[in-house]
Nucleic acid binder design. Structure first.
Length: 219
DNA sequence: AACCAGGAGAGAG
DNA sequence: CTCTCTCATGGT
């Protein structure tokens, strides 16, 4: 058993794919919008939705709140689930506004802020961590389906459908949630997604996978 | 033409 | 607590 499997995966992925420059967004608020819109949705469709919002200059909390749901729904339609997501955007925008925006919320400790985000309807664990990490620059690692799948195939976690918090802890026990590690968290999650999109989506064996030497199925 | 995507909420058991 | 269902569009 390796002593630091997560770090090894990071180093390997980084050596293969290089820096990823995530999250693809211009502002913190756009990160949050993307995080909500990409729930169970291909990023390609999210890009269309965000572009539609951008065209109408709706990418701010105040504009989201002052725009009728029907208009928002038309804009974000390509991203699917547009009825609930338009509501989620409004709910989150309302939260941001009432709490004084990013500057004020940034002062809150990571764990406390995470709980606040999780209390908002439409913000689950992955969305909350995405917002914490990429919009607030807080050291909170993001776990997704790719992460669970990859870690299981590498033998780092025991079951493929492992729970969220245990997987998150796996990473954060090895790479402590400190400010200096925010960059690593960002890159690692981005690398896992980019790798997963190419090699882990369909085939469980990852024949041509750059990580095949590390994969438990290859031993 | 089923199947899935950078999930989450609500309800049942 | 752990399933299961629903929400919806666009690309393989």
């Amino acid at each position: 058993m390796k002593e630091k499997p997560v770090v090894e995966v990071f180093q390997k992925l980084f050596s293969v794919y290089g820096e990823q420059h995530w999250w693809p967004a211009k502002t913190p608020f756009e990160v949050c919008v993307g995080a909500i819109l990409t729930q169970n949705t291909a990023w390609k469709n999210v890009e269309k939705a965000i572009e539609n919002l951008q065209k109408r200059n709706l990418l701010s909390p105040s504009k989201i709140l002052s725009t009728p749901s029907e208009i928002l729904e038309i804009c974000i339609k390509p991203a699917g689930f547009y009825v609930q997501k338009s509501l989620y955007l409004k709910t989150f925008s309302s939260f941001l506004t009432k709490r004084g925006g990013f500057e004020q919320l940034k002062k809150i400790e990571t764990g406390a802020l995470r709980r606040e985000l999780l209390s908002i309807k439409g913000i689950g664990r992955e969305t909350a961590d995405s917002i914490l990490l990429y919009a607030f620059d807080k050291p909170s690692f993001v776990v997704d389906a790719y992460t669970k799948r990859l870690f299981f195939r590498l033998g780092i976690s025991k079951r493929e459908k492992e729970k969220y918090e245990p997987v998150k802890s796996l990473v954060e026990m090895e790479i402590p949630p400190r400010t200096e590690n925010v960059k690593v968290y960002k890159e690692l999650h981005a690398l896992i997604v980019e790798h997963g999109k190419n090699y882990c989506r369909k085939s469980p064996l990852c024949q041509e996978c750059p990580l095949k030497m590390m994969c438990s199925y290859d031993r």
